[in-house]
Design a protein around this nucleic acid. Sequence first.
DNA 1: CTATAATTCAAGCGATTAATTGAATAATAG
DNA 2: CTATTATTCAATTAATCGCTTGAATTATAG
Lengths: 220, 220
Amino acid sequence: MSTPTPKQALFEQLARIAAALGSAARLDLVEILAQGERSVDQLASLTGLSVANTSQHLQKLRQAGLTVGRKEGQFVFYRLAGDEVLRLLEGLRRTGETHVAEVDRLVRDYFSSRDQMEPVAATELLDRARKGLVTVLDVRPAEEFEAGHLPGAVNIPIEELGKRLGELPRRKEIVAYCRGPYCLMSYEAVELLRKKGHKARRLENGLPEWRLAGLPVERG
Amino acid sequence: MSTPTPKQALFEQLARIAAALGSAARLDLVEILAQGERSVDQLASLTGLSVANTSQHLQKLRQAGLTVGRKEGQFVFYRLAGDEVLRLLEGLRRTGETHVAEVDRLVRDYFSSRDQMEPVAATELLDRARKGLVTVLDVRPAEEFEAGHLPGAVNIPIEELGKRLGELPRRKEIVAYCRGPYCLMSYEAVELLRKKGHKARRLENGLPEWRLAGLPVERG
DNA sequence: CTATAATTCAAGCGATTAATTGAATAATAG
DNA sequence: CTATTATTCAATTAATCGCTTGAATTATAG
């Protein structure tokens, strides 16, 4: 048990952070937390993990400094520690897409706009939305919408979209978005909307990336 | 064994990348590889790991897409897969420094310019070096220097610095650099140089960060 | 106070990991 | 061809991980 050098101690800490992201279940939690804070059992039901298991994953994330918990009454609400975490995740995504063939394949097959789903860039959308040229549609759960959404966006969670199509204007183009680049909800939304005769596209990323880019966010 | 959703499959892949960085030994390897390519036993002797262990770590890094190997004769040279990996590491550092108290403490105690060691910013150094106002000193091993270094830099590996002080001009300020922000060699160099009456400071980061910033690099 | 709900803790199990050791491959030197 | 060197593979061990189960803790509601 020799004393570790400062560098070893530092790398040990950084390794703990990386290891905390080294589990698909925890990445799933992090993607949800990127939308706003959530209680343990909300997270458990959104991910399908058991409550105890969720709690343990959250503690690992917290020990790594990636999340912070806030106790309110009998609930503990977790959220991401800060925007550095989002940037770290972006680095992870980029590394995967650039250097891991399997990631590239999955993105191409399931998440890429290989057909006519060409995504709308954030700045382009902001411009066109301000001019009233498009309807911005947020298909995430209501809680996430309330915690922050694009200016002027309409919230119809993806499960309700089929029944609530009437609420959307018929002629204007619709741009849908959800949690992030690897979230399938907006893909489903665009598919459904087009089937029903709407002109529809996807925002290239989700709300966290929009916010990280310094673009305006509305609350409540 | 239900078929995983595309998102689960993707997160599985990204988790593998993160897990590959989730070990202090591998972060050590990555820091060295960020300086240029190295053979397995060079890496083993630089890190103090056994050869077999080093090989296994390298394979884990390679499977995660973080490194690539190139076989030449009986040697296999590994290098980082690309600059995305450096950006990912920067994200890891920033997250640690911002959100992990222990990282902050270690950086403050051992790596911070809390005294008069105020680091020189990259752009400032480039400017002053071009005007011939400073001597730029690279204290990394010769192989790493040859693989790429700051324009006009002098290479004196840290172990030889004591004996080769005579090669450095007496009056000009010296700016030392090494592998990166968590590399101690340039700290030692500045300390030694000051003891011997030189005016000396540190570059804020190492060569990889310099190169990533798009600043010019010399070879050979 | 008692009952209930949210979260954490603790113990246990199978799977994975880091490291060691020794053998197997593969390329070069003589 | 033989010896040497670099690397990888295979088998082993101790430690850690992900998850489950059930109990303990803490706060609220009645």
